[in-house]
Amino acid sequence: MKIPRFLKGTTIASLVAVLILPFVLPSTSLAIEVLIFSIAALGCNLLLGYTGLLSFGQGIFFGMGSYATSLCLQRLDAGLVTSLLLAFVVGGLVAAVVGGLSIRRRGIYFVMLTLAFAQMFYFMAYTASGLTGGDNGLLDVPRPPLRVFGFEISTLGASLSYYVFVAVLFLAIFVALRRIIHSPFGSTLLAIRDNEERATAIGYNTRYFKIVAFMISGSITAVAGGLYAMFLNFAPLSNIEHLMGEQILFMTIIGGTGSLFGSFLGAGFLIVVGDVLSAIWPRWLMLLGFLLIAIVLFMRGGLWGCIESLMGRFRGHQNTKKDPPLSESPTGSLSTKEEAKNER
């Protein structure tokens, strides 16, 4: 039997990583956190790495997902699967609205729109304290047992069993995204990333593709948000803050855009390093600042780009260096003014 391509390579790497993670890391809850944010970074990567859209709005989807799941669990007394499905749907719908409006502009105006929406959703969540708990967040979010068609598979009470649940979801989303990226749909997204005018000229409705990419990204990120709320037993206001979106963005970029495994690396790196360093040096965010600067100056492919070029050197390939995946083609500053006008 022929094994499809999307089950080889980095899928195997993720499987191995997921299997050894709880044993390498000091605690299972840290491993859970790594995987939850890996899922969020995967969602972000589809937009940033594969469609070329730098969105500060990922926090909206993450926060909406955690509110949707928590409210569904608390008020409707629904099960685990139903609540996560609701988060998936809500995330997709919100992303359709936010993304659909934001992609009406391009370049820096697109970024500004996502920023404006991120702030609006934050202040809406802050104001609607009857629903979201406002500043206090939603307390006592339950983590119900996993039931499929009435069969109780696990109570998810122990953190290791919750880890297994999150890991299965992570792998499923990873494989699904790989499948999407290697489909004609994914190739179209890449075409839009590399040259939107050309994609339009060939006859693709780029707006439709961008909205669908946004919806997939929003749904995935919202599921991560829901998982996070159940993990914390708490849905804090900070889940929908624009800093959350920024953090997800940083993970994606540090790991390497344009590589799904990079998202796992980035989330793992930021969370583990943050956990280790914050205990000994509360100002470790400064290191993150320097790291971002260094990434822009020296390693635009992120961690995954480093590994790739090391592997290339190991195999003896010269010049395996590829174009930085984040970019439209680099343009000289002296000629970008016209493009800036086109962005509008």
Partner: peptide, 8 residues
Amino acid sequence: VYNLPHAF
């Protein structure tokens, strides 16, 4: 970084 895309 002037000659890089806005994202950078």
